[in-house]
Design a protein around this nucleic acid. Structure first.
Lengths: 196, 196
DNA sequence: ACATACATACCGAGTAGTATGTATGTATCG
DNA sequence: CGATACATACATACTACTCGGTATGTATGT
């Protein structure tokens, strides 16, 4: 059911996905649906929570954690995010980013669940960024938290451009820029602190 | 009518905005609506085209064009984008970015109109970026076009995070990171070409 | 000066279809 | 036997869209 919601909402959006269609895809009846979810809004919240869970597990198992150096882990994360931008648009884009755009004003409960997923994921990057900053003696006018959040902004924006262009290529290009930025940040830390 | 569509779709989304509601806001009848637009999809296309027109004029009149140096104009653009992230969420976020997420699979005509607006706007930045690169003798593994596109990705992603968090603050933080990146790119051009 | 014919823009009640949600019945469990 | 987990058949509201009618203007002929 939650998987059906994930797939349908990712390709059609929240409002355009009907409960009946969802039931048909998942092979359940409307009775079962409304037995498990109070209403459609509750499904949206549950879908966002399910997304947070499954993506957490997915990234926890990803190979970039093998690196001993936290800086390498962070760069490895970015490379990994770049690598998984491939195949069908609805397969690599972000459910909660999509839903947020639609429901942020009308359904605060869904918006909050989406925000928890996005910022919760960003928070998992903070320790590595902070450790990398400390190892390189970086004290800048940006924080580990703001850089972690920025990576998510770049990714979300990259997904929008991918959907607009119909291809993941522009998204990968943007992630390349993000990687270069991070290299600059930590290379600059070795010499001074900020550009010019 | 197009203004009503712009405001309604920016806060509620395309699918959740009904024709009847649109007519009520704009103070027209359904007869008038379907006289002017073949169907709701045609309105979506027209709204995206109207957005492209009005934003083109808005940015053409913006103060950053006063700078004599193309590099300053580009940085001025980024600062301007940062400055206008204020007030209500539905007022500073991007109509075509929002619509793209919803309709990219179901309504190719709307998606294409949104893509034309986004990438058309990005293209207006290319000449200044290219001129700045040439003035500083930069030959890098990135192009003016890819950097222009990346700026749009950061902005679009920043808007998503703003909607998720309910505040423009995180969006402005991301634009700050973008500015710092651009400064790095052009500072590095003066010495070598890439980080390290 | 003005009648006729016609085109365009618009009105708004109505329609077929679809949306979410509900009321009620039934099977399956501990 | 009571509670939970569903299935089925609606109910009600809303959806995009239509269609016959009308108001307004314009081109043309006399």
């Amino acid at each position: 059911m939650l998987e059906a919601a994930r797939d349908a909402i990712r390709s059609r959006g929240y409002a355009a996905t009907s409960v009946a269609e969802l039931c048909r895809i998942a092979g359940v009846t409307t009775g079962a649906f409304f037995h498990n979810f109070e209403n459609k809004e509750a499904l949206g919240v549950a879908a966002a929570a399910y997304w947070a869970e499954t993506t957490s597990a997915f990234f926890a198992d990803a190979p970039y954690h093998r690196h001993a150096d936290p800086y390498d882990r962070f760069l490895g994360y970015i490379d990994f995010r770049r690598d998984i931008i491939q195949g069908d648009l609805a397969e690599f884009t972000c459910l909660v980013g999509t839903m947020t755009q639609e429901v942020f004003a009308a359904y605060p409960s869904i918006r909050d669940a989406c925000a928890a997923s996005i910022f919760g994921h960003a928070a998992t990057l903070e320790p590595d960024i902070a450790a990398a900053m400390q190892a390189r003696g970086i004290s800048a006018d940006w924080t580990a938290a703001s850089l972690a959040t920025h990576t998510q902004a770049v990714l979300q924006g990259a997904f929008i451009l991918a959907k607009a262009s119909g291809s993941g290529e522009v998204a990968r290009d943007s992630v390349d820029h993000l990687r270069r930025y991070v290299e600059f940040l930590f290379a600059a830390g070795l010499v001074a602190g900020s550009p010019q």
